[in-house]
Computed example of a mutant assay.
Amino acid sequence: MEISGLIVGLGNPGKEYELTRHNFGFMVVDAFLAGLANSADTIAAKKAPYELWRTKVASGVWLFAKPLTYMNKSGEAVAHILHYYKVQPETVVALHDEVDIPFGRMKMKCGGGNAGHNGLKSLQQHLGTPNFHRIRLGVGKPLGFDTSSYVLGRFSAEERAHLPTLMTEACDVLYLHMQGKEREAQTRCNSFALPAVTP
């Protein structure tokens, strides 16, 4: 069975990291799978360093993954999936938090650097290329404390009120991409904006 691509949400496993900014990618994957009305099959793999689902979307078979290796080793899990299922790196879409983009915005691109993001750094290292797609989910810059504490902190109450809208939009962008409408997906993603939200 030929796989069209892999959608991977970046984040950290465990209850203590739920609803943190660093787990934005996990949250979008969860939202997309929830919208499939149980049509995604969980792929059980003993001691696999990830959670993995397979589903048919837009006439193609797609994999969805959440690495369980913690953020800075995400690439190990993704490389294992690509090797086992014979998926090419350029078909990967990584969803991740981005401090250089304000909360309420998101950007989509293919390739580029990692801007100090440990999850992206690990992906580039283990995939051997930066040429995969990214949906950069804005969380904004920290105010008054370090970046690590900020991204490992939970969304504010005001931000949480907007998360359903943001995740729906990210899911719609993903669906366009999976339909082969890459330019339309990127345009929609890059032009989307919520009203200014204070963290």
Rank of each mutant, 00 (worst) to 15 (best):
I7G: 00
V8W: 06
G9D: 06
G11Y: 11
K15M: 05
E18A: 08
N23F: 10
F26P: 10
A31C: 12
N38G: 09
I43C: 08
A45F: 08
K46H: 09
Y50W: 01
Y50G: 00
E51G: 00
W53G: 02
R54N: 03
R54L: 07
V61P: 02
W62N: 03
P67T: 10
S74G: 12
A79H: 04
Q88Y: 02
P89S: 02
A94M: 01
A94C: 00
D100L: 04
K109L: 14
G113Q: 05
L120H: 15
S122V: 08
L123G: 07
H126Y: 03
L127V: 02
G128L: 04
N131P: 00
H133S: 01
L137Y: 08
V139D: 08
K141T: 04
P142L: 03
G144T: 00
F145T: 00
V151E: 08
E158C: 07
L166T: 06
M167N: 13
M167F: 15
M167D: 10
T168Y: 05
E169L: 01
A170E: 06
M178K: 02
G180E: 07
G180Y: 07
G180W: 07
K181A: 07
E184I: 13
R188C: 06
C189L: 14
C189E: 13
P195G: 12
T198Q: 13
